[in-house]
Design a protein around this nucleic acid. Structure first.
Lengths: 339, 339
DNA sequence: CGTTCGAATGTGCACGGTCACAAATGTGGA
DNA sequence: TCCACATTTGTGACCGTGCACATTCGAACG
């Protein structure tokens, strides 16, 4: 009978130890790069590990160390470009740091669903949580459950609390608004995102701040749901009363829908109406007309978020939370108003 | 000193057992819904678990059971709409089935990177793997490493091997091509995806099959990279020699870039050139003109994929792998050719 | 009233690592 | 030669849960 027949059990450190002629503890030391191991011993153990295709058992390690090296991501609309990019970056950063990532999607935003998703994460004994979701509500649940792990969120300036990652969306929104005002527009609408998303709220505040600072009268923003479909229908409604020359949309998808509606009404962009988006998704440069928008570096955002969380977990120094300043990308969808 | 001061350790089944006046095994039975537990006992134990906010320790459970209840997702371009949607669906389905999901991103497609990502997953003792990536290469690595866990991939008809999930992309591509031919087009180009993506290859084959079946001469497809940017540059190159009246793009993003290039050249869509995409991303209906495309239900795809994998893991019955037939959505980007 | 049998519960160990501590080994100087 | 001390290695317990098996309990039956 061949010696390498498929074992019923995967090899453990004790198997390795036996074959290498050392104690299991020595094998453990090799695994963890303990300093005081003779090179020759280390090499011998490594050799056996290779031969056996040994893999440390994560569950056993987690159990004995009392730490899971796993972080959880709580995410809504994870199929959209922004969140998806951030999640990807978070995963990469986590892997780099030797952490595992587990994602829970929120299909709706009611407290029960949020609680269930959090439960799912906590059951995995995650060491930290990243929230990419309508954070207002999630925060409530997090506070109420007095969750025992650190958490961070991708969040705007004006830190709602200490868990946020600064990202100056207000500045971005002000830049976009200023651009329209500078072009000569005075009747500007804002199509905002869902009001319980902190990003949406920050962009809205940026818009209102800038309008106020420049003494331009404003109307109440429309609250959307991030989708192109909504942008389209909102545009149709708005165009019944054509009392504006520019719209600032809280994301690129809604801006796309808006432009569709505007064209359907026989109007020209930017001749009759200028449109500004937010995010600079990769497709925005190819819209018709190419979309003026505010660039967000989602990947960088995800990376920073992860760094922050890892600091919290390891009780490291409070990393400086400098804000990333988004950049206005001017393309063909904006121009001076027609008179 | 209050009795409920923050314990240094989370409560275990033994803590629960002590307070409930039963053995730890009885607590374990309650946890696992063992049939022969008296209702009164069960209730008492549940009560204590609630009081203590007891959470089973996943690592211990995994260690003891020898099973991790975790599946891995190996994903490339996970920030794109298609993959992202599928991943979200997979996560939901997994959570429903009591499984956890761990995702590893591929930043490039060379064997070393693939191997590293697989390693990362295997280190977590995943019980199965879903591949959403340039599968040709990943397959090689999977086979070569003789990975010990079942794996499935989101894949086209014509099963490359037994691990695939049928999804009739060839039929979808044929429908799109047929649509163009029926409109009267005879000079049709195909902008394909990266050739090591099975989806790209299947769509290309569908295109070539249909062209052959209808006796329309064809030129070699152009190989793209799924991005709108590439579609734009490919379009610019193609338009130097304007010997076609229609293009079938392997996804919607590239189709968007193509339309951008076509408009830049001063041509009309669909008057001068018809364009068909593939995927029906939510934005496609709002492109200018709205894009004729082939609808794929990524969420359904992800769910089926998960069901298939869970069957494999539990050695269940070989589920019938019926193909989902994609649907052609005709919008404004296609029309009869001008003569 | 003893026997039998199924339901309900308890006992002890295994899972595969890590940790604290003990022991062995090597090295240099008095 | 022997001791002090650093380096390297070994021993045994422990993390929290599930499994196999043993035991107790209770009811039914001849």
């Amino acid at each position: 009978m061949p010696a390498d027949l498929p074992k019923s059990r995967a090899p453990s450190i004790r198997d390795v130890a036996r074959l290498a002629g050392v104690s299991h503890q020595t094998v453990s030391r090799v695994l963890n790069n303990h300093p005081s191991i003779r090179d020759s011993t280390k090499a011998r153990v490594q050799q056996v590990m290779d031969d056996l295709q040994y893999r440390p058992n994560r569950a056993a390690r987690a159990l004995s160390r009392g730490t899971s090296r796993t972080i959880g991501v709580l995410s809504a609309s994870s199929s959209q470009y922004g969140p998806a990019s951030s999640i990807a970056a978070i995963q990469d950063a986590a892997r780099e740091a030797g952490y595992y990532v587990n994602t829970a999607n929120l299909t709706s935003a009611d407290p029960a669903t949020i609680e269930a998703a959090l439960d799912h994460l906590m059951l995995q004994s995650v060491e930290g949580i990243v929230v990419i979701a309508p954070q207002m509500r999630v925060f409530d649940v997090l506070e109420q459950l007095s969750v025992a792990v650190p958490y961070v969120t991708l969040q705007s300036t004006g830190s709602l609390n200490e868990h946020g990652l600064s990202f100056d969306q207000i500045a971005g929104a002000r830049a976009a608004t200023r651009h329209l005002i500078d072009l000569g527009h005075r009747n500007i609408y804002h199509l905002a995102g869902p009001q319980d998303w902190i990003e949406a709220e920050a962009r809205m505040r940026g818009f209102l701040d800038e309008m106020g600072a420049m003494d331009v009268p404003t109307t109440a923003p429309i609250l959307g749901d991030w989708t192109a479909d909504f942008g389209y229908y909102a545009g149709r409604e708005l165009l019944r009363v054509r009392d504006f020359t520019a719209i600032f949309s809280s994301n690129d998808q809604m801006a796309l829908g808006l432009m569709h509606a505007i064209r359907d009404a026989g109007l020209d962009i930017p001749g009759d109406v200028s449109v500004v988006g937010f995010d600079d998704i990769p497709e925005a440069a190819h819209f018709w007309p190419p979309l003026t928008t505010v660039r967000q570096d989602f990947a960088e955002l995800g990376r920073r978020c992860m760094a922050l969380l890892l600091d919290d977990i390891t009780d490291g120094p409070d990393q400086q939370r400098s804000a990333i300043i988004p950049e206005l990308i001017v393309r063909g969808s904006t121009g001076p108003p027609a008179f």
